[in-house]
Design a protein around this nucleic acid. Sequence first.
DNA 1: GCTTTGACTCTCG
DNA 2: TCGAGAGCCAAAG
Length: 108
Amino acid sequence: MITKFQKRVYELCKKVPKGRVTTYKAIAKKMGTKAYRAVGNALNKNPFGILNCSGKNAVPCHRVVAINGKLHGFARGLRKKAELLKKEGIKIKNNKIEDFDKVLFELR
DNA sequence: GCTTTGACTCTCG
DNA sequence: TCGAGAGCCAAAG
């Protein structure tokens, strides 16, 4: 079941280019809401699959991180996501983004 | 329709 | 610097 809210979240996630990341807050703000948790909740229940971010119809949810550039919690695939991010050119240090300021992509 | 939960964030100690 | 508590919104039970 994909609600409009979730769909919007996914759309925004897709806008994040490769090698860049965004935050839950940025997404929520772009939607004109403060539902940071709801954003994460939407991704949590995402129909594309937690690690199915490689598909064309999938959402690069691994590019969405916490406000402080840390991967915070995510799911069991956290480790893999970190690796994936690293592969995209994002440096990850102890589940945290090193050059967060540089890779941070502000939604437009 | 109310209560619980959650991949969050902020503030206080 | 780290940990705990509160606030926030949407979806699921």
